[in-house]
């Protein structure tokens, strides 16, 4: 059994989320708890797939994409402060995305081949939703925001940067793997993704703590 160093950030993030339960409820971010459970289970099984006698871990990550995306979309919807028709348009787009991801999982790239199309689609949606959310957060509030104390700012900022990086690295996953593209004697995504993951989950944890402190105030 092996636990990668960035997994500690993911576990810590889940622990912080549970500790800040009431804060997350006040900020309508409770969906993060099941999402983080899925993330932790996926990373653990994904990294230790040989322990389970599996040949590859693609199915684990493909299932992760399928299971985590609805939670992610739900959280994004909460952070967009949708009203009236916007809610309808947003959830229509989300349902269409989910249909495409499912079709890809079952019929196009399949279950045992990494679903890069789904991943690129999710990354595009992540970049778009987090950008919209950040713009909304900044423009809609007439008062000056203290970004450092704004949980939605931290969540969306790390999501935006994560989406932009993984869009290239995981989108080209197959190519990088086949051509043995390495940097510092490590596969490109192995060299970059752990650090990005650590930053993302540290950002989430800080946002959860902000939710808790804001609720107390």
């Amino acid at each position: 059994m092996h636990i990668a160093w960035f997994e500690y950030f993911q576990i810590a993030c889940l622990v912080v989320a549970l500790y800040c339960f009431r804060g997350l409820r006040a900020c309508s971010l409770l969906a993060f708890i099941p999402l983080l459970v899925i993330v932790n289970v996926t990373e653990f099984t994904g990294i230790n797939y040989r322990m389970f006698g599996w040949e590859s871990n693609y199915l684990t990550y493909n299932l992760y994409l399928l299971a985590s995306t609805p939670f992610y979309f739900f959280i994004a919807g909460k952070m967009l402060f949708l009203t009236g028709k916007e809610t309808f348009v947003f959830y229509t787009v989300c349902i269409l995305c989910m249909i495409l991801i499912s079709v890809n999982f079952f019929f196009i790239q399949g279950q045992f081949h990494f679903n890069t199309y789904s991943l690129v689609l999710i990354d595009i949606m992540t970049v778009v939703f987090s950008s919209l959310s950040l713009v909304r957060l900044t423009i809609l509030d007439p008062q000056e925001l203290n970004f450092a104390r704004e949980p939605f700012f931290w969540i969306n900022s790390v999501n935006l940067l994560f989406g932009l990086i993984t869009l290239v690295i995981l989108g080209l996953h197959e190519y990088i793997l086949i051509n043995h593209i390495e940097i510092a004697h490590q596969k490109l995504y192995n060299a970059i993704l752990p650090s990005v993951n650590a930053i993302v989950y540290a950002g989430y944890s800080y946002a959860f703590i902000l939710c808790r402190t804001q609720r107390i105030r």
């Binding site: 950008s131 932009l164 290239v168 390495e182 970059i192």
Partner: peptide
Amino acid sequence: QVIFTIVAVIIILLFLGVLFL
């Protein structure tokens, strides 16, 4: 060249993201 291009694209995208922020 491929590594360079991928890293460059990542840096550009990151730069755009940071610029946006």
